[in-house]
Amino acid sequence: MPLLQLEHVSKKFGQVVVADDINFELEEGEAVGIVGPNGAGKTSLFGIISGDVRLYGGQIHFVGQALERMHPSVRCRSGIGRTYQVPRPFENMTVFENTLVGSQQGAVLRGRKSHEAAFSALERTGLSSLANRAAGSLTLMQRKRLELARALATQPRLLLLDEIAGGLTDLEVTELTGIIRSINAEGVTILWIEHVVRALLSTVDRLLCLASGALVADGEPRAVLASEAVRRVYLGDRILNEAMDS
């Protein structure tokens, strides 16, 4: 049974189509990247899976369970963790308290176990020395790490990463991809939207490309990036034809 299964998923905001009959499956333990130009519907797709955005048509199954009518908090508790493109820590709480919310609510752990899980998420993301710092005072890199730590503390089976490498230096991207690879190596399935293609290529073994809400490519990362469909999406038909002619 696939871990996640999307069948004919569609969504419109008014007349704007953000998901146009999307079909794909994720197997447990996979690391899959999503690329696509701005406005392709990538973040909306994450919203549809995590429950932020209500589905318009189609079906989503997670471990065989239908997600359409499931509350976002229940989706999280059943194993779907998510980070935001712009980190959204609980600013008035400490770094540790942020992950504690994840371990107590998402992973439904109690007492000492919840504290251990929260601290372990901080250790894995290199934030343990900042545990008592107010989340509102963190730098961008630290916020991105905290975003990842809070999602990890919910003990997800599927982790949705939304442009977590955006805005970071090369060194920071390398550090972060190392952490993500180790999370995937432990069996957590990764679905990762990213514009920093270098980061994706070092981590994922499959790549999806979205354009105008539709899935235009799905396969081995380098083959997908080299495909005409993807080049057309990024460069447009005219530029592509000119390039082919010259």
Binding site: S50, G51, D52, H71, P72, S73, C76, R77, R82, Y84, R88, P89, F90, E91, N92, M93, E97, N98, L100, V101, G102, Q104, Q105, G106, A107, V108, R150, A151, A153, T154
Partner: peptide
């Protein structure tokens, strides 16, 4: 307290709290 912490979390960002498993 756990509930108190949750109240502060949803007060900060109820959607993020929801996606951390909390029913705001």
């Amino acid at each position: 307290t756990k509930t108190g912490r949750l109240i502060r979390a949803v007060s900060d960002d109820r959607e993020a709290a929801q996606l951390s498993g909390a029913n705001y």
